[in-house]
Simulated scan of single mutants.
Amino acid sequence: MRPGARWIAALESGTMLLVLAGLWWLASHQEWVGKVFLPTPEATFRSLAEGIVDGKLAAFTAATVQRMVLGWLMASFAGIALGALIGISAGARVWIQPTLEFVRPLPASAVLPLAISIFGLSPGMVLSVVAFGAMWPVLLATVHGFASIEPRLREVCAALEVSRADFIWKVGLPSAMPDILAGMRLSMTVSLIVAVVGEMIASQAGLGQAILLAARSFRASELFAGIALLGLIGFASNALLAAAEKKLLIWQKP
């Protein structure tokens, strides 16, 4: 994308954001929706600032980000390792792919009762569910990336008697990297969602618990402040991964 096109896209996005903020301000001040359910932007930003200054909201945010990142790293490592082992073998794909397609649509929240029975209401339980839910985009993307390797590369490596480990490391992973990075970006979003849901259900410290308590107490400004923080976390993490992907895939530029 040309620099001028980037600026135009950024301007259009900023304009849309300002329009939505203006509609929020108008709806809350005109009380189209009761302030118990829709606080004003000023009240939300005030609650956000107060929560960060007194440290409570900052601590909740740090707990959620830590849980999200750890779960994402575990999911990425497991997804890439398993995906490479499955994707490198056509026979393994034939046998395992149907099972993966059966388990993949299973919501991570549906696994929470099983995880609670195994780990109890503990931080490890939430982390395990986050890793489980976030693993599938990386695993399936890795399988697809390895399955899409140019057949002539496989033939050349077979003729040179390249070992399976060397083929995975030197040929498979570089070829599958675009798919893997796309899966990791999606996985990061899933890990944030599952971390928040797990905090709500398991009563673990984090933004999920803070949002749930604010909703039960009808503290709308604190509820919206927590939601705004989740949006910022998601935006920042996606931007960082997009920048890393751009650097790692610079060789793809024509």
Rank of each mutant, 00 (worst) to 15 (best):
A205H: 13
A210H: 10
T99A: 10
W7N: 01
F167P: 06
L240D: 07
T15I: 15
L127D: 01
F37Y: 14
S13L: 09
V65R: 14
G226I: 06
A49I: 14
W251H: 12
A5T: 12
K56E: 14
S76V: 01
L212T: 05
S128F: 14
V103S: 01
A131S: 15
Q209P: 06
T40S: 15
A115W: 00
G51K: 06
M1D: 03
R6Y: 07
L212W: 07
L121Q: 09
V156F: 05
I118Y: 11
A214H: 02
G120M: 11
P178G: 09
A202E: 08
P98G: 09
L17K: 15
S47M: 12
A141H: 05
I227M: 13
G234H: 00
W72Y: 05
Q204P: 05
W32F: 14
A131K: 10
A195C: 12
I201H: 01
A243M: 14
F235C: 02
L73S: 02
I250H: 15
F167K: 08
A244R: 14
A90L: 13
S28P: 01
S117Y: 11
R154V: 11
G231K: 02
G133Q: 01
P113F: 07
L17R: 15
E155V: 05
R216W: 08
T44D: 01
I96E: 07
A236C: 08
A49Y: 14
F224V: 02
R185Q: 09
I180F: 02
G208T: 08
A43M: 08
R2P: 06
R93T: 11
L26F: 15
V129K: 03
A92T: 03
L240P: 03
F146N: 03
P178F: 09
F146C: 04
A81P: 04
P113H: 07
A115P: 00
P113M: 08
E222L: 04
A90P: 09
R93P: 04
G51I: 04
I80C: 11
